[in-house]
Design a protein around this nucleic acid. Sequence first.
DNA 1: ATAGTTAATATGTATGTACATAATCACTTT
DNA 2: AAAGTGATTATGTACATACATATTAACTAT
Lengths: 242, 242
Amino acid sequence: MRYSIDHKSPIPLHAQAETLLRQLIAEEEYQNGKIMPNEIELAKMLAISRSTLRQAINKLVFEGLLVRKKRMGTKVAQAGVSSKSNNWLSFSQEMKLRGITIRNFELHVTWAMPNAEVTRFFEIKPDKQVLKMERVRGKTDEPFVYFASYFHPRVGLTGDEDFKRPLYELLEHEHSVIATLSKEEISAMAADKFIADKLRVPIGSPILFRKRFVFDQGERPIEFNIGYYKADSFVYTVESTR
Amino acid sequence: MRYSIDHKSPIPLHAQAETLLRQLIAEEEYQNGKIMPNEIELAKMLAISRSTLRQAINKLVFEGLLVRKKRMGTKVAQAGVSSKSNNWLSFSQEMKLRGITIRNFELHVTWAMPNAEVTRFFEIKPDKQVLKMERVRGKTDEPFVYFASYFHPRVGLTGDEDFKRPLYELLEHEHSVIATLSKEEISAMAADKFIADKLRVPIGSPILFRKRFVFDQGERPIEFNIGYYKADSFVYTVESTR
DNA sequence: ATAGTTAATATGTATGTACATAATCACTTT
DNA sequence: AAAGTGATTATGTACATACATATTAACTAT
């Protein structure tokens, strides 16, 4: 048999089944609409229980990769979903695209105690110091964003790197860390004293607040970034399809 | 007991459990991080088996509403109100998912002259009237967003439709218009008199401003939507990979 | 005090069983 | 031929049970 499951492996059976199913899904015949082996048979083939197999199938159904229909069986969803291939650009690249030349008004790199959010995201102890980079950037005549980045110890930054280089290039080339996934949260808020000061605006001014959780290929956290943008200086664009 | 399950109902027990869980999630104490009753107890309380209950929990975990940790229990995921760019859901569906009941504070449908941005997007003559829908929505006790939507004449809306229904369902079922692509722009701004009034906030308050350009399958424009969200009431989340 | 050990707890994994339900196919009746 | 009827099939629902595992909290020994 081509696909099989290792009952002695520490990897849960349903997880193994899931990967096998993904391989099946990738096959051309199933892509073309062939119905997959039914649950009872498949369970027998893999020598796992139907319930366990269903755990795996369920996940893929949730993800939208498979569709099930009573009596009709299970097959690969015909959709061609995807919404991604979003722009993955560094800040300076993004700005360049808009014809804006960026200047660093401030650039500090320090070792700092992480706050609760950072420790939770990095899954480290609260007393473990992390590298923190702060910068204020903007057009030549006015600053319009304050950034703070925290880097996971795993990345291996010393603080002596040249942070004027594009960040993701630096991580990739000097530290073999490849950022592949980012989760962002965007909201609005009023400027407090600290931010008002950095961005040279009155306290209470509207600010676009952006949090970024950046992961590497293994979905391990590598960077936590927060950005405070002066209103009207920044527009966040997204494209999504269904 | 406040929550209970009807074993004789034709609705599957796990589905009933799911709605109950959503109600629980909506409760303030759980929003604030209180751990939910453990599976065994909860199953006993609802008089269903643990497996059935887990079916319901699994779904919510997958949706990202709950997080589970061994030994530590299950609690509501901290994120606030959010919008996932991938899932294509209507506003009310999104809110429902989070157990928030949405109230329409205002709902006006009128024929209006399009502004420059709308005529450009729709590629219509400036004197061609378009259907405009305005609404103020929010939690039962406070409004937190003002929306204005413009619909392309091609869609064929008359203005007599029931706009309390989920919008994309309405378009799809009654007018065979399927929204498949949306381009969004998100930025921050200060509330002007009009918005301050609608959202019951002081003039100058920070507002999250969101423009949406919605297209159908043929990439033809069908809706232009702008939304003004009270700060802190809305977090926009995006996931991107490369 | 500190380190190491152990118990308690809530979720995680896995199986076996039973019956329900939707959709189709084959068959029978009109 | 059309309509109805029943068998078949694969998924859907539901339960009871058992043991594994991660994590904290309490305890114990150094």
